[in-house]
Protein backbone atom coordinates (compact mmCIF):
# COMPACT_ATOMS: atom_id res chain seq x y z
CA UNK A 1 0.00 0.00 0.00
CA UNK A 2 1.32 3.41 -0.90
CA UNK A 3 -0.08 6.88 -0.44
CA UNK A 4 -1.39 7.11 -4.03
CA UNK A 5 -3.34 3.89 -3.84
CA UNK A 6 -4.74 4.78 -0.42
CA UNK A 7 -5.75 8.24 -1.68
CA UNK A 8 -7.29 6.63 -4.77
CA UNK A 9 -9.29 4.19 -2.68
CA UNK A 10 -10.47 7.00 -0.41
CA UNK A 11 -11.53 9.08 -3.44
CA UNK A 12 -13.37 6.04 -4.80
CA UNK A 13 -15.12 5.43 -1.48
CA UNK A 14 -15.97 9.12 -1.20
CA UNK A 15 -17.50 9.11 -4.70
CA UNK A 16 -19.73 6.16 -3.88
CA UNK A 17 -20.81 7.72 -0.56
CA UNK A 18 -21.47 11.15 -2.14
CA UNK A 19 -23.73 9.53 -4.72
CA UNK A 20 -25.70 7.50 -2.19
CA UNK A 21 -26.08 10.50 0.13
CA UNK A 22 -27.11 12.77 -2.70
CA UNK A 23 -29.89 10.40 -3.73
CA UNK A 24 -30.93 9.63 -0.18
CA UNK A 25 -30.97 13.24 1.15
CA UNK A 26 -32.66 14.76 -1.89
CA UNK A 27 -34.97 11.73 -2.31
CA UNK A 28 -34.11 12.03 -6.00
CA UNK A 29 -31.74 10.55 -8.55
CA UNK A 30 -32.27 13.32 -11.10
CA UNK A 31 -29.22 13.85 -13.30
CA UNK A 32 -27.72 10.45 -12.51
CA UNK A 33 -27.35 7.87 -15.27
CA UNK A 34 -28.91 4.57 -14.23
CA UNK A 35 -27.07 2.97 -17.14
CA UNK A 36 -23.67 3.98 -15.78
CA UNK A 37 -24.70 2.73 -12.34
CA UNK A 38 -25.79 -0.57 -13.85
CA UNK A 39 -22.41 -0.89 -15.58
CA UNK A 40 -20.60 -0.15 -12.30
CA UNK A 41 -22.59 -2.87 -10.54
CA UNK A 42 -21.49 -5.28 -13.28
CA UNK A 43 -17.89 -4.05 -12.92
CA UNK A 44 -17.76 -4.68 -9.16
CA UNK A 45 -19.56 -8.00 -9.37
CA UNK A 46 -17.26 -9.43 -12.05
CA UNK A 47 -14.06 -8.02 -10.54
CA UNK A 48 -14.62 -8.96 -6.91
CA UNK A 49 -15.67 -12.57 -7.45
CA UNK A 50 -12.18 -13.33 -6.14
CA UNK A 51 -13.45 -12.44 -2.67
CA UNK A 52 -14.26 -16.13 -2.51
CA UNK A 53 -10.95 -17.45 -3.87
CA UNK A 54 -8.19 -14.95 -3.08
CA UNK A 55 -7.70 -13.36 0.34
CA UNK A 56 -5.43 -10.29 0.30
CA UNK A 57 -6.20 -8.41 3.52
CA UNK A 58 -9.10 -7.39 5.74
CA UNK A 59 -8.89 -3.92 4.17
CA UNK A 60 -9.12 -5.36 0.67
CA UNK A 61 -12.07 -7.64 1.48
CA UNK A 62 -14.01 -4.98 3.37
CA UNK A 63 -13.58 -2.44 0.56
CA UNK A 64 -14.72 -4.99 -2.02
CA UNK A 65 -17.85 -5.80 -0.03
CA UNK A 66 -18.55 -2.08 0.43
CA UNK A 67 -18.21 -1.35 -3.29
CA UNK A 68 -20.44 -4.23 -4.29
CA UNK A 69 -23.06 -3.39 -1.65
CA UNK A 70 -23.03 0.34 -2.47
CA UNK A 71 -23.45 -0.30 -6.18
CA UNK A 72 -26.51 -2.49 -5.59
CA UNK A 73 -27.90 -0.02 -3.06
CA UNK A 74 -27.57 2.73 -5.68
CA UNK A 75 -29.38 0.58 -8.24
CA UNK A 76 -32.12 -0.15 -5.72
CA UNK A 77 -32.59 3.56 -4.97
CA UNK A 78 -32.64 4.48 -8.65
CA UNK A 79 -34.75 1.71 -10.12
CA UNK A 80 -37.06 0.99 -7.17
CA UNK A 81 -37.33 3.45 -4.29
CA UNK A 82 -36.93 6.73 -6.20
CA UNK A 83 -37.82 5.40 -9.62
CA UNK A 84 -40.21 8.32 -10.24
CA UNK A 85 -37.30 10.79 -10.10
CA UNK A 86 -35.12 8.86 -12.54
CA UNK A 87 -34.53 11.00 -15.60
CA UNK A 88 -34.63 8.19 -18.17
CA UNK A 89 -35.50 10.48 -21.09
CA UNK A 90 -31.96 11.85 -20.94
CA UNK A 91 -30.31 8.53 -20.12
CA UNK A 92 -30.21 7.08 -23.59
CA UNK A 93 -26.63 5.91 -24.15
CA UNK A 94 -26.73 2.47 -25.79
CA UNK A 95 -24.73 0.32 -23.36
CA UNK A 96 -24.54 -2.61 -25.76
CA UNK A 97 -22.09 -0.45 -27.73
CA UNK A 98 -19.82 -0.72 -24.70
CA UNK A 99 -20.65 -4.22 -23.47
CA UNK A 100 -20.10 -6.04 -26.78
CA UNK A 101 -16.66 -4.60 -27.67
CA UNK A 102 -15.49 -4.86 -24.07
CA UNK A 103 -16.51 -8.54 -23.93
CA UNK A 104 -14.73 -9.23 -27.21
CA UNK A 105 -11.60 -7.43 -26.04
CA UNK A 106 -11.57 -9.29 -22.71
CA UNK A 107 -11.73 -12.60 -24.59
CA UNK A 108 -8.92 -11.58 -26.92
CA UNK A 109 -6.54 -9.62 -24.71
CA UNK A 110 -6.12 -11.14 -21.25
CA UNK A 111 -3.39 -12.52 -19.01
CA UNK A 112 -4.79 -16.05 -18.90
CA UNK A 113 -7.74 -17.77 -20.54
CA UNK A 114 -9.63 -18.74 -17.40
CA UNK A 115 -13.09 -17.76 -16.22
CA UNK A 116 -12.04 -15.58 -13.28
CA UNK A 117 -9.22 -13.95 -15.21
CA UNK A 118 -11.45 -13.11 -18.17
CA UNK A 119 -14.14 -11.70 -15.88
CA UNK A 120 -11.49 -9.60 -14.12
CA UNK A 121 -10.19 -8.33 -17.46
CA UNK A 122 -13.75 -7.63 -18.63
CA UNK A 123 -14.37 -5.59 -15.47
CA UNK A 124 -11.18 -3.57 -15.96
CA UNK A 125 -12.11 -2.74 -19.57
CA UNK A 126 -15.74 -2.06 -18.69
CA UNK A 127 -14.81 0.23 -15.80
CA UNK A 128 -12.72 2.36 -18.13
CA UNK A 129 -15.81 3.27 -20.19
CA UNK A 130 -18.64 2.79 -17.66
CA UNK A 131 -18.89 6.52 -17.01
CA UNK A 132 -19.71 7.33 -20.65
CA UNK A 133 -23.53 7.12 -20.24
CA UNK A 134 -23.22 9.58 -17.31
CA UNK A 135 -20.99 11.99 -19.25
CA UNK A 136 -23.32 11.64 -22.23
CA UNK A 137 -26.26 12.52 -19.99
CA UNK A 138 -24.48 15.63 -18.67
CA UNK A 139 -23.66 16.74 -22.21
CA UNK A 140 -27.24 16.09 -23.31
CA UNK A 141 -28.83 18.14 -20.55
CA UNK A 142 -25.96 20.65 -20.75
CA UNK A 143 -25.55 20.85 -16.98
CA UNK A 144 -24.98 18.98 -13.75
CA UNK A 145 -25.80 19.73 -10.14
CA UNK A 146 -22.75 20.62 -8.04
CA UNK A 147 -23.12 17.47 -5.97
CA UNK A 148 -23.10 15.38 -9.17
CA UNK A 149 -19.94 17.20 -10.24
CA UNK A 150 -18.28 16.40 -6.91
CA UNK A 151 -19.23 12.77 -7.39
CA UNK A 152 -17.74 12.72 -10.88
CA UNK A 153 -14.59 14.48 -9.73
CA UNK A 154 -14.03 12.00 -6.89
CA UNK A 155 -14.71 9.05 -9.17
CA UNK A 156 -12.37 10.36 -11.89
CA UNK A 157 -9.62 11.19 -9.35
CA UNK A 158 -9.61 7.61 -8.13
CA UNK A 159 -8.20 6.13 -11.34
CA UNK A 160 -5.91 9.12 -11.89
CA UNK A 161 -4.42 8.45 -8.43
CA UNK A 162 -4.11 4.78 -9.35
CA UNK A 163 -1.96 5.80 -12.32
CA UNK A 164 0.46 7.43 -9.86
CA UNK A 165 0.25 4.25 -7.75
CA UNK A 166 1.22 2.15 -10.77
CA UNK A 167 4.19 4.40 -11.56
CA UNK A 168 5.26 4.07 -7.91
CA UNK A 169 4.82 0.31 -7.91
CA UNK A 170 6.70 -0.08 -11.18
CA UNK A 171 9.74 1.69 -9.78
CA UNK A 172 9.69 0.41 -6.22
CA UNK A 173 8.12 -3.05 -6.49
CA UNK A 174 8.70 -4.02 -10.11
CA UNK A 175 4.94 -4.47 -10.38
CA UNK A 176 3.44 -3.83 -13.79
CA UNK A 177 0.06 -4.87 -15.19
CA UNK A 178 -0.31 -3.52 -18.73
CA UNK A 179 -4.06 -4.34 -18.89
CA UNK A 180 -4.85 -2.29 -15.80
CA UNK A 181 -2.51 0.52 -16.80
CA UNK A 182 -3.77 0.96 -20.37
CA UNK A 183 -7.41 0.81 -19.24
CA UNK A 184 -6.62 3.22 -16.40
CA UNK A 185 -5.11 5.70 -18.84
CA UNK A 186 -8.18 5.46 -21.10
CA UNK A 187 -10.47 5.90 -18.10
CA UNK A 188 -8.62 8.98 -16.87
CA UNK A 189 -8.46 10.54 -20.32
CA UNK A 190 -12.26 10.29 -20.62
CA UNK A 191 -12.55 12.53 -17.56
CA UNK A 192 -10.13 15.22 -18.78
CA UNK A 193 -12.77 17.45 -20.32
CA UNK A 194 -14.87 17.15 -17.18
CA UNK A 195 -11.85 17.86 -14.91
CA UNK A 196 -11.23 21.03 -16.85
CA UNK A 197 -14.83 22.22 -16.44
CA UNK A 198 -14.84 21.21 -12.77
CA UNK A 199 -11.73 23.21 -11.97
CA UNK A 200 -12.68 26.27 -14.03
CA UNK A 201 -16.34 26.39 -13.02
CA UNK A 202 -17.48 24.29 -10.07
CA UNK A 203 -14.53 25.16 -7.83
CA UNK A 204 -15.25 28.85 -8.47
CA UNK A 205 -18.77 28.40 -7.18
CA UNK A 206 -20.45 28.23 -10.55
CA UNK A 207 -22.75 25.52 -11.75
CA UNK A 208 -21.37 23.07 -14.26
CA UNK A 209 -23.07 24.10 -17.47
CA UNK A 210 -21.88 23.46 -20.96
CA UNK A 211 -21.82 26.11 -23.66
CA UNK A 212 -24.87 25.74 -25.89
Amino acid sequence: MNIFRLAGDIAHLLAVIILLLKIWKSRSCAGISGRSQLLFAIVYTTRYLDLLTNFVSIYNSVMKVVFIAASYATLYLMYMKFKATYDHNHDTFRIEFLLIPVTALALLVNHEFSVLEILWTFSIYLESVAILPQLFMVSKTGEAESITSHYLFALGSYRALYLLNWIYRYYFEGFFDPIAVVAGVVQTVLYCDFFYLYITKVLKGKKLSLPA
Partner: peptide, 10 residues
Protein backbone atom coordinates in the same frame (compact mmCIF):
# COMPACT_ATOMS: atom_id res chain seq x y z
CA UNK B 1 2.35 -18.54 -20.75
CA UNK B 2 3.08 -15.72 -18.33
CA UNK B 3 1.16 -15.95 -15.09
CA UNK B 4 -1.31 -13.13 -14.47
CA UNK B 5 -0.11 -10.51 -11.98
CA UNK B 6 -1.37 -10.86 -8.43
CA UNK B 7 -4.70 -9.10 -7.89
CA UNK B 8 -4.18 -7.10 -4.73
CA UNK B 9 -5.75 -3.84 -5.85
CA UNK B 10 -9.34 -2.68 -5.88
Amino acid sequence: PVKAPLKDEL
